[in-house]
């Protein structure tokens, strides 16, 4: 069922700074890429330092099969991601990929893709897959402030984009769940990625409307391949692993 996982050194072809917190890494394989689905992730090797030891799980932002390139959108949150942010074109990055269970393309025509902060990362590839499947993706992105905003034209090419910020510095002021687009009945389902309270709120709106909803979790993990059993997620079907059973789960299954 699943594509064979690879461990490989990929060439950094670009590291673009998107804003003060986010950067986009473009990595090239010298082989043809394995099938990569929206919501799947890679485990990135960071140098072993005083503060970093384990790999960093990062979801795929975009894939260019023709050029054998993957794009990763990363937020600097600590020493590990800060080091990844310092990578320069020409360097190599060791990566285990593709990992995890992807978002599901399901019945229906119009879907709202709701993210908070760096949870925006898997939404580009997902939006593209939805569009390719003949569906209409609509994006709703929550940011803390304008500082987290960046050029969203790649999303705009795929569908409508709505933005909220907590301080109102750009887009509508407030949380994604209070945005007017969430209060319309035009969607057949939601896909969400971001802080757990936000995803829970999106999930309960989906439940109240009795529509499909999938969430991508980012439970703390070590191996990413189902061996260490640390990224445990309680579900109605018992304890599941975010790395292999997820990171994407149907929200009806989650006990959170």
């Amino acid at each position: 069922m699943s594509v064979k996982k690879k461990i490989e050194n990929l060439l950094v072809t670009a590291n673009r700074r998107l804003n003060s917190e986010y950067f986009e890494l473009i990595l090239q394989s010298n082989e043809s890429l394995p099938g990569i689905l929206p919501g799947q992730f890679a485990e990135l090797k960071v140098d072993h330092t005083e503060h970093t030891f384990l790999r960093r799980p990062i979801s795929f932002y975009d894939v260019n099969t023709d050029k054998s390139e993957v794009h990763l959108l990363i937020q600097e949150v600590g020493e590990g991601t800060r080091r990844l942010g310092q990578l320069e074109a020409g360097e190599f990055l060791n990566m285990i990929y593709p990992l995890g269970h992807s978002f599901t393309i399901t019945e229906g025509t119009t879907f709202l893709l709701v993210s908070g902060g760096v949870g925006i990362a898997p939404m580009l590839l997902l939006g593209r897959k939805l569009k390719e499947a003949g569906k209409t993706p609509v994006f709703l992105f929550g940011f803390r402030s304008e500082k987290q905003w960046f050029d969203l034209s790649r999303f705009e090419a795929l569908g409508e984009v709505f933005i909220t910020t907590e301080d109102g510095s750009i887009g509508e002021k407030g949380l994604v769940t209070s945005h007017r687009v969430m209060n319309t009945g035009r969607f057949d389902g939601y896909y969400t990625c971001g802080p757990v309270p936000m995803m829970k709120a999106v999930s309960s709106i989906a439940a109240s409307r009795d529509i499909f909803c999938e969430a991508s979790l980012e439970n703390t993990m070590a191996c990413g391949i189902g061996a260490c059993l640390t990224c445990a997620q309680p579900t109605v079907h018992g304890m599941k692993m975010a790395c292999t059973d997820g990171p994407v789960f149907n929200t009806k299954e989650l006990l959170w």
């Binding site: 703390t220 640390t230 018992g238």
Partner: peptide, 14 residues
Amino acid sequence: EGNPAPRMAETPSG
């Protein structure tokens, strides 16, 4: 079922 999450913490060299 094992213990509740979080079940992992990265520490210096371990």
